[in-house]
Nucleic acid binder design. Structure first.
Lengths: 186, 186
DNA sequence: CAGAGCAAACCATATGGTCGGTTAGTAGAA
DNA sequence: TTCTACTAACCGACCATATGGTTTGCTCTG
């Protein structure tokens, strides 16, 4: 295998950054991230011109990964309205039930929100989701309710440092059930 | 007025800390907070033995303030089930519609979540809310849904750097309406 | 060989925390 | 009341450390 490969190194650095920032918060130093990636600080800054640029790239990467994760959760046999919302809910709760008990991408959004450029990035992403959900066909208020509740459940497990798996699973079922009906929620 | 008053100084420092941390994130330096409070760094550290202790005290203060804010929003003429949930929703959305367009206490929870001791504090607080809502009488699933959705809406406005007031108000009405009915949500 | 990937030393700055010393506030003696 | 003795609030300088970013130079690849 090639010893020097820009794309591969960037990937390794971004993965390391996700781990370190996820653990230490946005205060994570460039040096710490570089060490975690098995790269020197100079080497890291060769690929990302500054710390902020690295964190912004990390945010972009996470948005992409999250989009892909939701798409992957769409049930191919599910052709009813709300299938994308169901995929969103399932992706989020599956992530929440992962190793840490905390949805990684949400942790990182929260941490990175202060980095210049990230807020704008998240706003554009939100707009894309809105359009996608609109095409999904469910009543808009119903979608709003379910998506907001899923987001809320995710951050709750974040703030409180991991949540009860039973409650998580219960909430997931509750939200999925709500996507099976249509019209304004009551 | 007394020139030197421990309680008063602590209050001033905590208020300043809320402002500075809210603006600069958890990276806010002790010195910056001290300056904002009109106090020297040495003076500040006389009251709070360390930076972490200051931030933990800030978190405790915010939890208290938030609890008081919700209590204050309970409509005295409202004696139906779910009045506490309605107060919670109203308090959260009113805060979201404030100056910054972002709920201050949520911003600060997110920022402070990494500080030692804060996660534990938030967990205890969550438990208290659960009990209070249980006493409020609404169907538990309905409460879970509404509260999670309110939380989700709040953090959404956080990540995306301020949200559309029209959407906020729409969501509020949607959630309030859901607290008027009872039984499992459909 | 030429250029890109990369490491390590280096620099300027900022930060958390400590310390000696100063002054406001207070309780009691005279 | 006034003087004294003591406590605690507070300041400002100082220190060790950590951090973001730069520079220099080595090494691998094409």
């Amino acid at each position: 295998m090639k010893e020097r490969d820009t794309a591969r190194t960037r990937r390794i650095v971004l993965d390391a950054a996700a781990r370190v920032v996820g653990r230490q918060g946005s205060g994570a130093s460039v040096d710490a991230i570089a060490r975690a990636a098995g790269v020197s600080k100079g080497g890291l800054l060769h690929h990302f011109k500054s710390r902020d640029q690295l964190l912004l790239a990390l945010a972009e990467d996470l948005v992409e990964q999250w989009t892909a994760a939701v798409r992957a959760k769409v049930d191919p046999r599910d052709h009813g309205r709300g299938r994308l919302v169901r995929a969103y809910v399932n992706a989020l709760f599956d992530e929440t039930l992962g190793e840490t008990g905390v949805p990684e991408h949400v942790t990182l959004y929260a941490t990175l929100a202060g980095v210049p450029g990230v807020a704008e990035l998240l706003r554009r992403d939100k707009e894309r989701w809105r359009e996608a959900f609109e095409a999904d066909g469910l009543d808009p208020d119903r979608v709003l309710l379910v998506v907001r509740a899923a987001d809320g459940a995710a951050v709750a497990s974040l703030y409180e440092g991991g949540a009860d798996p039973g409650e998580i699973e219960h909430t997931r079922r509750l939200l999925l059930a709500l996507t099976e009906a249509d019209g304004p929620p009551t």
